[in-house]
Structures are given as C-alpha cells and as structure tokens.
Design a protein around this nucleic acid. Structure first.
Lengths: 184, 184
DNA sequence: GTGGACCGTTCACAACCGCGAAACAGGTGC
DNA sequence: GCACCTGTTTCGCGGTTGTGAACGGTCCAC
C-alpha cells in the first residue's frame, strides 16, 4: 500500500481538471488524496470523497501550497477516526492482535479474552466469563478475579481496557484517548 | 437551535478573515462550520479543525458556492458518527449509553434511570419513581432525593439533566448543545 | 411583611460487600 | 532448574445504599 495512515504524510497528487479526469478517477479508486487544478473556465466539479480538494488556476503558489497543506492536515486528523485502530482479534494460536502489535495469551486467559472480545463493548457476566474460562467447572471464586487482573495487565499495552461494571460483569473496550469512563 | 446534528445540514457561516478572527474563534469553540473569505493580501491561515475551509477573495460567486457545498458535503459524510447525538438508551446490563459514551449504573439508580428514560421529556412523579426504584417498598423519604442527586451527577457527563418540577416530580432531558465539543 | 409548613438539595456518616491486588504454593513445559 | 501458568488465601479499598441533619427556596395564613 502506498498511502498509509501510519506514515502521516500521504502523497497528494496534483491533477489538472478536467483534462486529467482519468487520473482523478484512478486516484479516487485507489483511495489516494488529490488536488484538482481547475481550468479557468470550467465549473467546479461536484463534491466527491473527502480525499479531494480543488483550486482555481491561476493561483498564487503560496495559496496552492496552503491548500495542499490544509488537505493534508484534514487527512491527518480525519484518518485516525476512520482507519486507525484496527479491530482487535484473536487468532487460534493464542495470539491477541491489535494492528501489528500482539501478545501471547495462556490458555485460560485466551478463553476469557475470546469471550470478552466476542462481546466487545458490552458487558459480559462473571458467570459467562467463568463458563468460558473453565468449560468443565470453575475453580474457586477468586480465580476469575485474578485472571481478569492478569489479562487486564497483558492487554493494557495494546490500548485495550477491561472495565469493571460492578455487580454486573466486565466490559472490554479500546482505551483510546477519548474513551468513556466507568464508575465501578 | 441553530446548528443541529439532527437536521444533517449545519449552517456554514461566512467569515471575513482576518478581520473577523473573533467570530472565527467563537464558531470554532462551538463546533460550527465556517468558510473564511481571505483578504486579498493576507497569507492563508494555518490549518485548524476540519469544520473550516477558506477561499481567496475576490472569487467568482459560483466558485464560492461550490466551495461551500464541498464543505457541507464533507461534513455530511464525515460527521454522522460524531454528530448524530444518538438517543440515550439503557441496556440490560446496567449501562446507560449515549452515543459511544456510557456510565455504569448501580441497581437502584438503574431502575430510576429506566423510569425516567421511559418518559424522557415528561414529568415522572416522585411516587412513580419510588415505585420504580423500590418495587417492594420504598425506604425513608429522603432516599429518593439522594438517589436522584447521585443519578444526576452520574448522568451529567453524558449531557443529560434531571430537572426538578417542584411538587410534581422529575424530568429527564438532554442538556444544552454547547457541551460535548472540543475533545476532537 | 413575617413566620411557618412544605419541599427539595446537599453533605456526612455508617454498614455492607464486591472486587483489586499482593503473596504464596503447586503444577507443567522446556 | 527455570520460567511461566494456575489457583488459593488474605487484606482492604472503594462503591453502593440508606439515614440524619443542615440549608435554602416557595407559598400561604395571619
């Protein structure tokens, strides 16, 4: 992939328009940002996706640069919401992955994590968790607490948080900067 | 209300710049979109948030209209996730959700909140609330007041307000629009 | 107007209990 | 043997709930 959210600097291609309409369409198809340089006499195009902007030529070079940098900036602050934060997932080898980061989970925590992940964003009962973690019978009461604690610490580096919902259960959520607060 | 998430068509304000910098800042603070009309000799401003665009004047009216419509279009396809202000709801796990934010409610407050939410926008009598909160008999008189107070504080971060209607009861409502902004 | 009844807000406190967390010990795989 | 996984015990913090009391506002009788 050429453009990349991580790089922070997607390349913005300048496109003469309408002369290079073909180029524009190609870029759009690839999801790459572009700046249209509008022929002096052509009406402005209809709004397309948000990876596109345009400027009427002739234009002062400073203004063109400014507009490109605005577009780049918009992409930089827009992207994270749409694109970043790839969905967390568990593969069958006991690896919990988020994007290109991962942690290995031991058997019990692996089953707990799967149960939580299956219902990510919603509350999972302690009962349900216990059943998921120990299919043929749970050990003592506190075993679950301890394992949740350890799982919590293991997942923290991946920006995942296990919230406690007191007297109800646990809730897995991405602990992004603008996350909600729980009180229990 | 002037700007409105529900309408889907936020008003875009035209702002002369830099003359009306104060207006620009005010609009930004309120999270309202705006189009800067750049003084012919002023360098373009630094990129701000993505509710903003600019055009160098003098400009053909058609081009200005086009640019405004591009900005509007961008908001329409960008915003829905942020702006929608989805209706508050209570799920069965004791979570009170508004959009992607939530708080956990303890049992009593959960029942009170459900009673209030079921009649959101209308008055719920103290009697009805007491019955909802304590199905098999209410405790002391003050208990309800205290729990409403605590529920009030818990719901405030979600932009929800419990209004008192003296000698009648309580009323749940979404609080003013000028709140949730600014976090990004 | 004044005092008082009524109503609602808020704080402080006590009792209860769910859960967090550390420490420890046995088990297992390499 | 060593590192790790697992489960238990134990301690205590902090959230929940209800009560009492102080405070302030509204309305009515006088």
């Amino acid at each position: 992939m050429v453009d990349d959210a991580r790089s922070g600097r997607p390349e913005i291609t300048l496109v003469r328009w309408p002369e290079q309409e073909a180029t524009r369409l190609a870029l759009r198809a690839e999801g790459r940002p572009r700046m249209l340089l509008l022929n002096p006499t052509t009406p402005a195009p209809e709004p397309g996706d948000d990876l596109e902007d345009w400027v009427r030529i002739p234009v002062a070079e400073a203004d063109l640069r400014a507009r490109v940098s605005w577009l780049a900036h918009r992409l930089a602050i827009d992207r994270p919401a749409h694109r970043a934060d790839p969905d967390p997932m568990i593969d069958d080898d006991g690896l919990f992955r988020v994007g290109d980061e991962w942690v290995a989970l031991p058997p019990v925590e692996h089953r707990l994590a799967r149960a939580l992940l299956d219902r990510i964003g919603t509350v999972v009962t302690r009962d349900a968790l216990a059943r998921a973690g120990w299919p043929q019978g749970a050990p003592g009461r506190n075993a679950l607490d301890v394992h949740v604690l350890r799982l919590r610490r293991r997942l923290a580096p991946l920006s995942l948080t296990i919230h406690t919902v007191r007297s109800r259960g646990y809730l897995l959520a991405v602990s992004g900067p603008a996350s909600a607060r729980a009180s229990g």
